[in-house]
Design a protein around this nucleic acid. Structure first.
Length: 279
DNA sequence: CCCCAGTCCTGCGGGC
DNA sequence: TGCCCGCAGGACTGGG
């Protein structure tokens, strides 16, 4: 479940390929259903060959390689995708290999166990349409309290559900939504439109603090072990989780109530009924 | 327009 | 031991 902290960790982990050129593009993953690849491999390869990687950016939960021709390669890992400079967790779920020259790393890999992710090569106008402000709201790391309130504050949905809407705010996923609302001491079931001004200010602080801390710890690697950084090493933020995945265990903040799990919009949601009581 | 449920995909763990 | 089912939740789609 790479969310903003995991994708930002991937981005930082492959920054060393800036300046390298693409020597070849090959697909992999024989028995598996193919991932979303656009365009198909022959055109993808032809359009990338020899292109210099000028920058590595993050757009929401996507890793974006800017090429010399102003085309971009967009990696969208979704649930189980990884961008790697080292050996992948296993060979059978390797989906794509991008051979490099002019870098101490010979290859950039895309690995994806469930294959819900995608790799796309887009021209600038396509990128603007598919990954632009129509599709993705302001980045969660830098969004202001005013923006947060104006973009979510009219919704009658539970604030936990509203926070997951990428068109409103980009980067927050299911895991960090629970952690953020706990840090903000807000009831995840509360309608977004019922939040007061002081709640939005506290929420924005929690969004920033939780995401920055998670980046410092290089993201969350859950029990299934899927998420890895670019060198195939696990993150450590899972040890800092206050509520996510801890149903029935004592809240790590108050220690006096047990964490509750509810399902909102078909997603697991965790909260402490004592720390996050509706005020 | 707003919002929800269903879909994709794979591996894992529980129940029998 | 093997099989089936449900679950995990990214983003998208169809429909109420």
């Amino acid at each position: 479940m790479p969310e903003l902290p995991e994708v930002e960790t991937m981005r930082r982990g492959i920054l060393a390929i800036v300046g390298a050129a693409i020597r070849d593009v090959r697909s992999a993953g024989g028995r598996l259903k193919p991932i979303g690849l656009e365009p198909k491999l022959p055109a993808f390869r032809r359009r990338c060959m020899g292109q210099t990687i000028q920058d590595v950016r993050r757009v929401g939960k996507r890793v974006v390689l800017e090429l010399g021709s102003s085309q971009v390669i967009v990696f969208e890992p979704r649930m189980t995708g990884l961008v790697l400079l080292s050996d992948p967790p296993d060979p059978e779920h390797l989906r794509m290999r991008i051979a490099l020259k002019g870098s101490r790393h010979g290859e950039l890999l895309y690995w994806d166990r469930r294959g819900l992710g995608s790799v796309r090569l887009l021209r600038p106008d396509e990128f603007d349409v598919r990954c632009g402000p129509e599709q993705l709201g302001p980045d969660a790391l830098t969004v202001s309290a005013d923006e947060l309130q104006s973009r979510l504050g009219h919704s009658r949905r539970a604030i936990k559900v509203a926070l997951l809407e990428q068109k409103a705010i980009a980067g927050i996923g299911n895991l960090y939504a629970s952690e953020i609302l706990h840090a903000a001491r807000l009831d995840p079931l509360r309608p977004a439109c019922a939040l007061a001004r002081r709640d939005w200010v506290r929420l924005q602080g929690a969004v920033r603090d939780v995401l920055l801390a998670a980046i410092q710890y290089e993201g969350s690697t859950l029990a299934d072990g899927t998420y890895r950084n670019a060198l195939n090493q696990p993150g450590a933020y899972q040890h800092q989780h206050r509520v996510y995945g801890r149903a029935g265990e004592p809240c790590r903040t108050c220690g006096r109530a047990r964490v509750v799990r509810v399902v909102l919009a078909q997603r697991s949601t965790f909260f402490c009924p004592r720390c996050q009581l509706r005020l």
